[in-house]
Design a protein around this nucleic acid. Sequence first.
DNA 1: TCTTCCATGTAACGCGTTACATGATTTT
DNA 2: AAAATCATGTAACGCGTTACATGGAAGA
Lengths: 191, 191
Amino acid sequence: MMEQASNLSHLGGAVLGLLARKERTGYELARAMERPVGYFWTAGHTQIYPELARLEAAGLVRHRDVAGRGPRQSKRYACTSAGLRALREWVGADLDPQPVRDLETLRLWSVWTVAPGVADQLVRRSRDTHARVLEAYLVELGEIFATGHHRASTHPDFASRLTLEGGIRQRRAAVEWCDWMLGELARAGGH
Amino acid sequence: MMEQASNLSHLGGAVLGLLARKERTGYELARAMERPVGYFWTAGHTQIYPELARLEAAGLVRHRDVAGRGPRQSKRYACTSAGLRALREWVGADLDPQPVRDLETLRLWSVWTVAPGVADQLVRRSRDTHARVLEAYLVELGEIFATGHHRASTHPDFASRLTLEGGIRQRRAAVEWCDWMLGELARAGGH
DNA sequence: TCTTCCATGTAACGCGTTACATGATTTT
DNA sequence: AAAATCATGTAACGCGTTACATGGAAGA
């Protein structure tokens, strides 16, 4: 019933997880939060900059000033040893099952109120999205295999491979589900 | 890039979707938001009561006072014809792909920082959760089959069956993924 | 010339969660 | 006797998104 204490927020875990892999500026973090972290978590730059300040105040990251390509100076952040310890604790902490928030399925739950053609369109669009994401995941997995570090369980590429494999299986299941639904809709609408 | 206009919020869609199936009080709506709607969307009673007021102000629901079992009088809400139209529009609206927010996978992405034993425990707990939810879904699916209305595409049970089937496939894929990860961890840790 | 990319931040707003508030009936 | 269920609401708080703000360099 109670979640194990861990002073890191979800966002803090995401940012530290990126910095533990390599040093980055706030801007680079924001881009990484689009892809590949965006495959399972998202955050805009307006969240990241304040979070970096909080993490630095807590001694979990530190920064050096570097010359930026933009008009301002850039700050390149790195994870401290205290930061790595906090990250480890956060990863290992007990976590009670997270509630699902799936807007697509929520809409689908009321699909009995609309005409069969509308339902069909809905599922078709959903199938296309899942299929496109699946393709992107497969490309990304190929890139990880190419680097050759994906077998050692303490290498970042190993963890990337685990998460990608999960995404691939998830999307594959979703595509198959959509195909199954299209069949059910055709059968129900067919007579 | 732009989402089709629909004056209903997500929460409004969830509430109207419930009321389109049958009349309910605020309390009953809150319980239904735990199960079965909680399988893909959640909302507490503190969200639902204000939302009902908003929907009523917009003419999408109306209420009758009924005798409550609690100390207060109860209000039993029903979806109006304008509400049903709004729900149909909301279901059929274009919706751009939703970002994923999966805390479990986010943590897994940093699993390379912890000891192999910790990683193993993490995946095992995750597997257990998915397996338990899968069992619950299968029971629920059996109940829907028992009612016998699940083949008509304009019956609520039809839509419930589609969403449940999706949940079952999703969880099944998740359990298999966890088993696969346990194998990978054993192989990586074994030498 | 216009748009996009680089690069950093602040401010306002909305949704969702937690805590607070009340109190009768039913179950343990 | 204590706890959970029934039943409705308000208030405070935190996280995430959108809008605002600045401005140089590179590409279309």
